[in-house]
């Protein structure tokens, strides 16, 4: 049963990240996901100091808020200061992360929160926190939260599909059609922030980035249709989670790390397969 619980949690994170990551990959904004996942640290800590508990909605909200604050900061540096985008991202998240570490090491002796858990969380621990959903049916409480977030994301993607699609692929047309680029930007950023926050607690920031970038990147090598991309990326994420989990078991090593490795290997395989197919195609067309 424990295997199932961990795989379920990882798969849910994978699907959430695939939904958001596909848009990020298309918008060339994956590194913002990286930035958010580090920048949540001060938000979590301040929310914890205010509320006094580590797992509740207040902390979640605090984290999501500081994630959004990071994106606002990045926007400000890029648009108003006219600093190049990559540097804006780098400056913003390192500053927020540094503030978070300072706060925690100064005032957080009793908080069960450190930079290690932020970086590579402990998905193995999800099985310790099992909740009865209805009589005789148990689930890790982490995965219940993830399911709720999945529902929110699905709703947002389905209802906002047109807006997200337009602002992603043809912002100029979207603007002329009266679709607000800014609004959809922040809708997406809120989604990414929410995803990152509920995920990194169980799988760590690094696996969140693997999930945000990896499966959508692999899927993008295979298709350019957004709908197919979303499904394909989710599927790839789930398969990688299952393989990664058993790999970790076999190696007796970190689950998050192993899933990252599986994602990396899958990418390399697909990358070379596509290269090979391209070469064959060009040979055929030459003949």
């Amino acid at each position: 049963m424990n295997d199932f619980y961990v795989i379920l949690t990882a798969s849910l994170v994978a699907i959430n990240c695939a939904l958001m990551g596909s848009f990020l990959v298309m918008r060339k904004m994956v590194m913002i996901g990286d930035a958010i996942s580090h920048a949540v640290l001060p938000g979590i800590f301040i929310a914890y100091m205010v509320s006094g508990v580590t797992t509740n909605l207040v902390v979640l909200a605090g984290a999501a808020l500081s994630g959004i604050l990071a994106t606002v900061l990045i926007e400000w540096f890029t648009k108003k200061v006219r600093l190049q985008n990559d540097a804006s991202i780098g400056i913003s998240y390192t500053l927020l992360f540094a503030l978070g570490v300072i706060l925690i090491s100064r005032y957080g002796q009793k908080v069960d929160l450190d930079q290690e858990c932020v970086l590579y969380g402990d998905i193995e621990l999800t099985v310790l926190n099992i909740r009865e959903i209805f009589s005789g049916f148990y689930l890790p409480s982490q995965s219940v939260v993830l399911m709720a977030v999945l529902a929110i994301l699905l709703l947002a993607v389905i209802l906002g599909y047109k807006g997200l699609l337009l602002t992603t692929f043809d912002p100029a047309f979207a603007a002329s059609a009266g679709v607000s680029i800014g609004v959809w930007h922040y809708v997406l950023m809120s989604g990414v922030s929410l995803t990152t926050v509920v995920s990194f607690d169980s799988v760590g920031a690094i696996l969140v980035i693997s999930f945000l970038a990896g499966p959508p990147a692999i899927a993008y090598l295979l298709t350019e249709r957004l709908k197919t991309l979303l499904f394909l990326a989710s599927g790839i994420g789930v398969i990688c989670s299952i393989l990664g989990y058993y790999l970790a078991k076999a190696w007796d090593a970190s689950v998050a790390g192993s899933i990252s490795i599986v994602i990396g290997v899958s990418f390399v395989l697909v990358f070379f397969a596509v290269q090979l197919a391209k070469r064959k195609q060009s040979v055929i067309s030459l003949e």
Binding site: V25, K28, M29, V30, M31, G33, D34, Y120, I206, L207, I209, S210, L212, A213, G214, P216, A217, Y220, L221, A248, W251, D252, A253, S254, A256, G257, S258, I259, S260, I261, I263, G264, F267, F271, V274
Partner: peptide, 26 residues
Amino acid sequence: SKLKPDTILALTLSVFFGVGIVLLTR
């Protein structure tokens, strides 16, 4: 590939770090 720099950076970063963590936990 047609992938953009940001995707490649994020993927490389996380996979290399994943390898590191697996080795470290071992």
